[in-house]
Design a binder for these strands. Structure first.
Length: 192
DNA sequence: GCTTCGATGCTCT
DNA sequence: GAGCATCGAAGCG
């Protein structure tokens, strides 16, 4: 297994969002290792994106990590769920890539334990589901991807990639139409 | 304190 | 497969 070097994350956000598809996202815990291939991502570019927490360079305790260098984890707790992003873009630019879906690879038994007795497809086909399945928690906030317990490694090369508008941001005016969602065409673990 | 953020997992069909 | 109730934390004033 080959971990991504920090330099991998040092490219434009939209480009990185596409290249993350097929990469393996790995989380190590005391219970064991769980991982999955990333099959769906969304880019958030705070400077122009009303759907982002960091819109208009709004700097808070929560968005702070997005202003830093690329390659760090931005975990965001919403309700009972936890969503995970990869910080991208130049330092000072609040940009990140939300991981929306993965395909289970390692520790599938562990995922069933965490998620309950569901179909395999339901383990990780949503942003809140995959964090629970992999055991990603709020305290992973600010962790650098590349070091255990949370990191990204090479996976597979997607045959075909689709691009389209993002999901769940209807209240974000023109930002809702930005084609900043990427997914592996035809993969059944994509959320929809 | 009140508002603001959206996904999950029911149920019903 | 569609509609709806429900859930917690952070920001802001």
């Amino acid at each position: 297994m080959e971990r991504m070097p920090k330099e991998f994350f040092g490219k434009p956000t939209l480009e990185l969002a596409e290249e993350l598809l097929g990469c393996e996202l790995i989380k190590e815990t005391e219970e064991g290792v769980a991982s999955g291939y990333i099959v769906e991502t969304e880019a958030y570019i705070g400077a122009v994106d009303k759907a982002a927490h960091s819109y208009d360079y709004k700097r808070t305790k929560r968005t702070e990590v997005m202003f830093g260098e690329a390659g760090y984890a931005y975990t965001y707790v919403m309700h009972t769920h936890c969503l995970v992003n990869v910080v991208s873009g130049e330092a000072g630019e609040p940009e990140a890539i939300l991981i929306r879906a993965v395909e289970p690879v390692q520790g599938i038994d562990l995922m069933y334990e965490r998620r309950g007795d569901k179909k395999e497809k339901d383990l990780t086909n949503g942003p809140g589901k995959l964090t629970k399945a992999l055991g990603i928690v709020k305290s992973d906030y600010g962790h650098l991807y590349g070091e255990p317990p949370l990191y990204i490694a090479k996976g597979f090369i997607p045959e075909d990639i689709s691009v389209g508008p993002r999901i769940g941001i209807e209240n974000s005016e023109e930002a809702r139409d930005f084609p900043w969602r990427f997914w592996v065409t035809g993969n059944k673990f994509v959320s929809r």
